[in-house]
Simulated assay, not measured.
Amino acid sequence: MTILVFGSTGQVATELRAQEPGAIFLGRDRADLTDPAACAAVIREIHPDAVINAAAWTAVDKAESEEEAATVVNGTAPAAMARAAAELGVPFVQISTDYVFDGTGSEPFRPDHPVAPLGAYGRSKLAGEQGVLDAGGIHAILRTSWVFSAHGANFVKTMLRLSETRDKLTVVADQIGGPTPARAIAEACLAIARQLAADPSKGGTYHFSGAPDASWADFAREIMALAGRDTVVEDIPTSAYPTPAKRPANSRLDCTTTKKVFGIDRPDWKAELGDVLKDLGAKA
């Protein structure tokens, strides 16, 4: 099975390469998401058996001042890719985000819950979801949250870096979600792509996040504990850490249908965190 992956150096793309080295990976040199037509043309040229889009504009705060550019990358490009995949009759897997929701309440968001993004990043990713749906092909939209790995920039690496010079860290405690290992997302995307190729009726929108749900402060404390750091984590409210983009207070995702349809369980983020820390040479 020939799998075409948009993305080459990001967290999920790096994990996809480790798990599926025979896949074709497209970096910006060959598929720049600021040129949606070129991305679609590559799909038609290669004619793969499945396409996974692991590339995106992930600078949440920067999107607030550059929404048009973010929407091209996160919205227009995936839509063009999905149309090309639909023309060829091959599955298209699009990674999306909890930011398409407004973050209200305390119950996990179901895939069919009404969307209401709080900012530019969420709107840009929602545009991508709608474009994939409008393409009308075999597809899976996989919403996830709080991605971490030993690669790229992420919360785990930031906390480790800060703990090297600080005795105390203040971390937001009123945003709750599921930290999700990039390795597990890659594994899920590959499984979904293969299952869609065999049974297109499984297409739809799904959720995938790590368990158990936790606050950012809880996540930080687990990082310190497993890394053997003495740095104390102090809880603060979101209001004490203002950012250009508003973050969802509730990022819990209901992953029931992902398990039911694809047989994919929520990953244990604490266990995966230990592996990531080991890869970073930071395990106690």
Results as ranks from 00 to 15, higher is better:
residue 31 A to H: 12
residue 67 E to S: 11
residue 61 D to I: 08
residue 73 V to R: 06
residue 57 W to V: 05
residue 206 Y to F: 15
residue 211 A to W: 00
residue 75 G to Y: 01
residue 180 T to I: 02
residue 126 L to Y: 02
residue 203 G to Q: 09
residue 50 A to Y: 05
residue 255 C to E: 00
residue 280 L to V: 05
residue 136 G to Q: 05
residue 20 E to Y: 14
residue 92 F to I: 01
residue 136 G to V: 05
residue 85 A to T: 03
residue 183 R to I: 08
residue 151 H to N: 06
residue 218 D to G: 04
residue 90 V to L: 13
residue 89 G to A: 07
residue 119 G to T: 02
residue 14 T to L: 07
residue 2 T to R: 15
residue 140 A to Q: 07
residue 203 G to T: 01
residue 163 S to V: 09
residue 18 A to Y: 13
residue 17 R to G: 12
residue 17 R to M: 12
residue 64 E to P: 09
residue 7 G to T: 00
residue 231 T to G: 08
residue 18 A to L: 14
residue 68 E to T: 11
residue 122 G to W: 01
residue 220 A to P: 01
residue 210 G to Q: 01
residue 211 A to G: 05
residue 122 G to L: 07
residue 147 V to Y: 02
residue 66 E to W: 07
residue 23 A to Q: 06
residue 37 A to S: 14
residue 233 V to G: 00
residue 199 D to I: 05
residue 70 A to W: 05
residue 165 T to I: 08
residue 36 P to D: 10
residue 159 M to K: 06
residue 83 R to W: 11
residue 209 S to D: 08
residue 232 V to T: 12
residue 91 P to I: 07
residue 76 T to R: 10
residue 259 K to Y: 13
residue 2 T to Q: 15
residue 165 T to W: 13
residue 21 P to C: 12
residue 236 I to W: 05
residue 178 G to R: 03
residue 94 Q to Y: 11
residue 32 D to R: 12
residue 112 D to Q: 07
residue 99 Y to F: 13
residue 221 R to F: 01
residue 71 T to M: 12
residue 121 Y to Q: 01
residue 148 F to Y: 12
residue 134 D to Y: 05
residue 241 Y to Q: 10
residue 276 V to H: 12
residue 231 T to K: 04
residue 108 P to A: 01
residue 81 M to Q: 09
residue 12 V to P: 00
residue 273 L to V: 10
residue 63 A to G: 06
residue 243 T to V: 06
residue 207 H to Q: 09
residue 19 Q to S: 15
residue 142 L to D: 02
residue 102 D to E: 06
residue 70 A to F: 04
residue 10 G to T: 04
residue 110 R to I: 06
residue 163 S to E: 11
residue 255 C to G: 09
residue 233 V to N: 03
residue 260 K to I: 14
residue 220 A to L: 04
residue 128 G to S: 13
residue 269 W to D: 04
residue 259 K to M: 09
residue 157 K to S: 03
residue 75 G to M: 04
residue 31 A to T: 10
residue 167 D to F: 14
residue 140 A to H: 07
residue 192 I to C: 03
residue 193 A to I: 13
residue 234 E to S: 12
residue 186 A to S: 13
residue 204 G to L: 03
residue 246 K to R: 07
residue 128 G to Y: 06
residue 161 R to T: 09
residue 202 K to Y: 11
residue 104 T to M: 08
residue 40 A to R: 10
residue 200 P to K: 06
residue 124 S to A: 06
residue 28 R to A: 15
residue 228 G to I: 10
residue 92 F to T: 00
residue 94 Q to S: 09
residue 231 T to I: 07
residue 270 K to Y: 01
residue 282 A to M: 11
residue 185 I to P: 03
residue 88 L to G: 04
residue 97 T to P: 08
residue 191 A to C: 14
residue 236 I to S: 10
residue 38 A to W: 10
residue 84 A to Q: 04
residue 164 E to R: 15
residue 261 V to R: 04
residue 146 W to Y: 09
residue 279 D to L: 11
residue 193 A to V: 15
residue 14 T to A: 13
residue 266 R to H: 04
residue 284 A to W: 05
residue 227 A to S: 13
residue 229 R to L: 04
residue 173 A to V: 02
residue 143 R to I: 00
residue 170 T to G: 11
residue 250 N to Q: 04
residue 257 T to V: 13
residue 144 T to D: 03
residue 110 R to C: 03
residue 35 D to S: 15
residue 32 D to K: 15
residue 12 V to S: 03
residue 198 A to I: 04
residue 194 R to M: 12
residue 276 V to A: 10
residue 141 I to Q: 08
residue 47 H to F: 11
residue 149 S to E: 02
residue 2 T to S: 15
residue 36 P to Q: 11
residue 130 Q to R: 12
residue 175 Q to G: 05
residue 258 T to V: 11
